[in-house]
Write a protein that binds this DNA or RNA. Structure first.
Lengths: 192, 192
DNA sequence: CCCTTTCACATACCGTTGGTATGTGAAAGC
DNA sequence: GCTTTCACATACCAACGGTATGTGAAAGGG
């Protein structure tokens, strides 16, 4: 095994184990020693690959965001009609964000660890951008009336984030359907 | 100065200074030594009044939540019409949550430090309850169609939370007006 | 009024944590 | 084959949250 290969493997192990632990116990409750033990390396390796605990978390968060963003984009792109793309993308985001990794890492710890500004930048690059793009397109094509896009994006994004947190905590599986319906009506209202 | 009086004063000082520091630097970046130094006491006093750092934060958060909830309720109650109460309450929440204390303590660090469940319970008791009550009343009186209240509450609450975070970070003062307008339209859509 | 008890802290201390500085051995380059 | 590089491992440190114990003034009782 060459050096580059070994390096990549170590980095992957650190990301994988830290992601698992961060998702399960939360950023604050996980120690670096837990992470390096689980990954089978030492703190020296961790600090060779990342600038510290927060930087490791940032890398994990970026990975989670990228997965969610790709899932949302893929689901949306399957729909030919722009309006359907918006709806499908929003629903995909809602269900994807219910997963335990996304919930804890992206929605709960993310803003607290990195600060809201940096968290927002990652979110913007990964998935919120798709939302803003979809809204802009729908306005330009006259499907929905022209309004400032930024406030709408944040309102909708926040609505989905909080709903996802609630759904992940909810015991009733019917809540997902009800929330999906309410979200659809909320989107539908944009057309008037 | 009697003992009870002194006790209350110490407790107040701890709450006041920790709130200031938590709001300014965030929960993780504030050490207990900073807090007790600022309050002019020692760690012994802190642990005599609170069970630890997280418990102190919980007390601060409860205080912030209670202020926001009271402000929202007061603003809403000034409106005679139930529908106007909902709109006024939502707008009051949006502007109140833009304040730096509320922003950092309630919206960013709250869920991460206490866990989403406990955070949600405090939020529910302080302000989300008003939202659910207002929606329920409007449904019972036929102003808006009957729908499951819980999903709507979470969608709207999340929308306002995220919008408040964005507004607090925004440089453009016009964003507040635009967001308020978008929020009003979002609420208005419930009537159909 | 004095003696005892209580209690609101202060002091001293501890284990663990994130972070750093240095050592090391195998792979890469010449 | 010799040197250099580099991907870590080892050893260490300051600071943190938390605890156990001490202390002195206020409250309570005779």
């Amino acid at each position: 095994m060459g050096r580059a290969e070994q390096r990549e493997q170590t980095r992957r192990a650190l990301l994988r184990e830290s992601r698992r632990l961060f998702a399960a116990e939360g950023y604050g409750a996980v120690g670096l020693s837990q992470i390096v033990d689980a990954a089978g390396v030492t703190k020296g390796a961790l600090y060779h690959h990342f600038d510290g605990k927060a930087a490791l978390f940032r890398a994990v968060l970026a990975q989670v965001q990228e997965e969610v963003g790709r899932h949302v984009a893929a689901t949306a792109d399957a729909e030919p009609d722009p309006w359907d793309r918006l709806v499908a993308g929003c629903h995909a985001f809602l269900t994807a964000s219910t997963g335990p990794d996304v919930r804890r890492i992206m929605l709960i710890d993310g803003p607290a660890v990195l600060g809201w500004r940096e968290w927002r930048a990652l979110d913007e690059a990964a998935s919120a951008r798709h939302l803003a793009d979809a809204l802009t397109l729908l306005m330009e094509t006259g499907v929905i009336p022209e309004r400032p896009v930024a406030p709408l994006t944040h309102l909708l994004s926040g609505a989905m984030n909080e709903a996802a947190l609630w759904l992940a905590d909810s015991a009733d599986p019917g809540d997902l359907a009800e929330t999906g319906a309410a979200l659809t009506r909320m989107l539908e209202s944009l057309r008037s």
